[in-house]
Simulated assay, not measured.
Amino acid sequence: MHLTRFRLNTARTGARRLLESPQRLHAAVQFGFPEVLAGHGADDTPADQPRALWRLDHISRAEAHLYVVSQSEPDLTHLVEQAGWPHRAATTGEPGWQTHHYRPFLNRLAKGDTFAFRLTANPVHSVRRHAGEPTKRTAHVTPRHQLGWLTKRQEAAGFRLLSRENPPATGRPEDGYEVVVHNRRDLSFTKSAPPVGKRAAPVTLVTVTFDGRLEVTDPEALRRTLTLGLGKAKAYGCGLMTLAPLP
């Protein structure tokens, strides 16, 4: 397993095009792996091909980082040429991105360890408007329900959200956790490569970012979460959780 970070040069037109489109960014990530066949859309990666998880972090208006978790080591030369600093890469001999072996860190995870975490996700639930109708996947749109989505999955995902020592007296359950729900994005676009004979289907997503603190409760389950992702819409930059040491 590998964990990769790539900083986008937001002054470049190519970088801005990628930042505007989860589809373009997904394709750019997939083409970093020679073993992934060309010509597949965002949602039709073959079952026997590795699917890389990715997440885009907007550090500021002028700084954005792309994180990728993958089985094999990526080659992001095309991203450097399109959205990075190619001259610097050529003159310094550095590739323009940083890739680290992820397995040693994953193997060190132990029950009771605590970390800061970040997760961008697509919190959804299934609803039925009328009896007898099939259920429909619907986005959670309030921070309360979005955090509720995460708390319902924490046990199976191998972690426990840490509670605040002195929670505010608001009466809201979500205020009791050391978690901030922010950066909501409402995305709407059309699939660029529909299957032959079918019309392009519209895609609507609500994504949010969770920043908080957690305790490891099941190391093996958490390893699966960190490498396979959490929730839906993984092709569009959701599901990748990263951990960092607590100060």
Results as ranks from 00 to 15, higher is better:
D113N: 13
P194E: 11
P168F: 14
A201I: 08
A121R: 00
N166S: 08
E174S: 03
H130R: 12
G176W: 07
Q154A: 14
Y177M: 05
R160G: 04
G171M: 05
T170N: 07
P167A: 06
K136D: 06
N107I: 03
T190N: 12
Y102F: 05
T120V: 09
G132Y: 02
V181H: 02
V208H: 06
A201T: 15
R108S: 13
Y177P: 06
T142H: 03
Y102R: 09
R172V: 02
V180S: 11
G176F: 05
T120I: 07
G132Q: 08
T209C: 10
A131M: 08
P143N: 12
T207L: 07
E155Y: 05
V141M: 12
P195E: 01
K198H: 08
Y102L: 08
L161R: 06
A116Q: 10
R164G: 01
V141H: 13
S126I: 00
L147R: 00
V208Q: 06
A200N: 10
K191H: 15
A201F: 07
A201P: 08
R199N: 05
L162C: 09
E174V: 01
T135H: 15
T135M: 14
V206I: 10
G112W: 07
N122R: 02
R172W: 05
F159H: 05
D113E: 03
P202G: 12
H140K: 02
R144F: 09
L119N: 02
D211N: 10
E165F: 10
R103V: 09
F105Y: 14
D211Y: 03
G171Q: 02
V180W: 13
A131Q: 05
N183G: 04
L187M: 14
R103P: 00
K152C: 10
A156M: 13
P168Q: 06
V181C: 05
D186C: 15
A201M: 09
G176L: 06
A201D: 12
V127R: 08
N183A: 09
S188F: 11
A131S: 11
T170S: 13
L162P: 03
V179C: 07
A201L: 13
Y102P: 03
R160Y: 08
P194H: 07
N122M: 03
P143C: 10
V203E: 08
N183R: 14
L106F: 03
G132C: 06
A169P: 08
Q154D: 12
R184M: 15
R144D: 05
V208G: 11
Q146Y: 04
D175I: 00
R129T: 12
P202Y: 09
F115H: 13
A139D: 06
L161I: 04
R185K: 15
D186Y: 08
S192T: 12
V141F: 04
N122G: 10
S126D: 06
P173T: 00
E155V: 09
V179W: 03
D186W: 01
R185C: 12
R160S: 14
F117I: 05
V203I: 15
R144L: 06
R172Q: 07
A139R: 15
